[in-house]
Amino acid sequence: MDYGLLVMGAPYSQPAPHSALRFAHAILARGHQLAGVFFYHDGVHNASSLMTPPQDELNIREAWKALHEQHGVPLDVCIAAALRRGVVSESEAARHGYTAFNLEAPFELTGLGQLLTLQQRCQRLITFAN
């Protein structure tokens, strides 16, 4: 079965993304496909390449990235939610005249339309939010 995940919680302060990550591995372990993860609201913080947890703790951005590398899971980030919260790609940083950016591939800034597409492509869309 094709699954999609909607993640709306911030890592380290809310349990939602941690639950979502465990669930993602569990659906793959049961032989399902993960068609995509969409990060929305505070979930956009999962994509920040500047997050620096202690080395003996989970780096959730790296964990999502590994999911992409090992299983080809698209990682889409809502552009409106991200820019509001200071999660910015290189091209958006250039457009706004910023000297730094903190969103890189495999995360991609996309619109809400991408969430609808994901929902239409999946048999199951599971929301993780707090």
Partner: peptide, 19 residues
């Protein structure tokens, strides 16, 4: 367990997350 969570989503076509 988390696998049982996945099984529930297999069984029930729709889900709502309350938060």
């Amino acid at each position: 367990d988390i696998e049982g969570f996945v099984q529930l989503t297999e069984q029930y076509e729709q889900s709502i997350t309350w938060y």
